[in-house]
Design a protein around this nucleic acid. Structure first.
Lengths: 180, 180
DNA sequence: GGTTGCATGTAAAACGTTACATGATTTT
DNA sequence: AAAATCATGTAACGTTTTACATGCAACC
């Protein structure tokens, strides 16, 4: 792989038409952000690099006195996107502080596990709600819709696991207290 | 938060006794790696910083001519770990290239969605198998066990979603071909 | 005698976020 | 007139990975 993953996010976001860097960022923020984020600090320099590499083309389209550049895929960029799409996905990374806290919850002098589970559950239920709002606010077509549903079901599954596990822990605790 | 998350991984790994940097890395690699990784490049410098800050203590324990330092929590370090455990988790980050490819799968000239789903499924099923091996190779106690089961169920859920969705796509495709 | 495992460490590069700076246009 | 949005960009900072370097000990 020669291009960064951010490059593919940009190529992908240009697949359906011309976009400015600002529009790309806005699209990312309402769609891929939940599984692949990108900041201005990545997007603007990457747009330059992709243009130099001939994978995208930028044309100045100022609106009034406001400078503005819209980018579009070149045939080479479209091929590059296609090649990437046809290869097996490589990256799946997770950073889950809640799970880390649960893992260490046997550390002396505390009973943090149920509260950690409750907090994690709250977090994922909030994500579910935000995604449901995205869902309501205009149905995205095709695969975006599929991915949105994945996000909802995925976060709901995690929230449910947390609740299920928290209840199991509390039952264990109750049994222990009864036995003791 | 003043400490890095890596610092808490180290404090947590020291909660049950003395460990060398090498042992901490080995523990991470068979346990938290799936939701929180750490490299030597993070661990060794962080051990220094934590020792300077008085949260851990290192004592030289060479074995033969091989230099070796075992670290343990100080009371301050134990307090710091406890405080962190009692606070709500902040970080939940995901980078899922397969989902990104699925999201863009409507790009011209390809039918990559089912193959992307199949590849993602294979990946998560491989993770499930690795985790089941960890499970067999000695039952971890307490919350580590809980987290291990989370990992298995979580990856299995994703694998199942992929298969379910892939089949739905193929049915749609079959119907389209019949109608057309 | 060679390979694997134990053990420590660093340097460079890559990656990513945050904060800042600037200024026009549109909406309230 | 103010606030929000559109639009571009950079600098500093922090994090993380990768690759390298070193050497002893244990096992085969």
């Amino acid at each position: 792989m020669e291009l960064t993953k951010t490059a593919y996010v940009i190529l992908g976001m240009l697949r359906l038409g011309k976009r400015t860097g600002y529009e790309i960022k806005s699209l990312v923020d309402v769609s891929t952000r939940f599984f692949w984020a990108a900041s201005y600090g990545q997007i603007y320099p990457e747009l330059r690099r992709l243009a130099v590499a001939g994978l995208i083309e930028g044309e100045p389209r100022p609106q009034g006195g406001r400078k503005r550049v819209v980018y579009s895929l070149t045939p080479a960029g479209r091929r590059e996107l296609r090649t990437w799409l046809d290869a097996d996905p490589q990256v799946f990374e997770l950073r889950d502080e809640g799970l880390l806290k649960l893992f260490f919850a046997d550390a002396v002098g505390g009973a943090s596990a149920p509260e950690t589970l409750a907090a994690k559950r709250r977090h994922h239920e909030q994500v579910v709600e935000r995604l449901r709002e995205v869902e309501r606010s205009g149905a995205p077509e095709g695969y975006a819709d599929l991915v949105l549903h994945y996000g909802i079901e995925f976060n709901q599954w995690i929230a449910d696991w947390c609740e299920r596990t928290r209840l199991a822990l509390e039952e264990d605790g109750a049994r222990d207290r009864k036995v003791a």
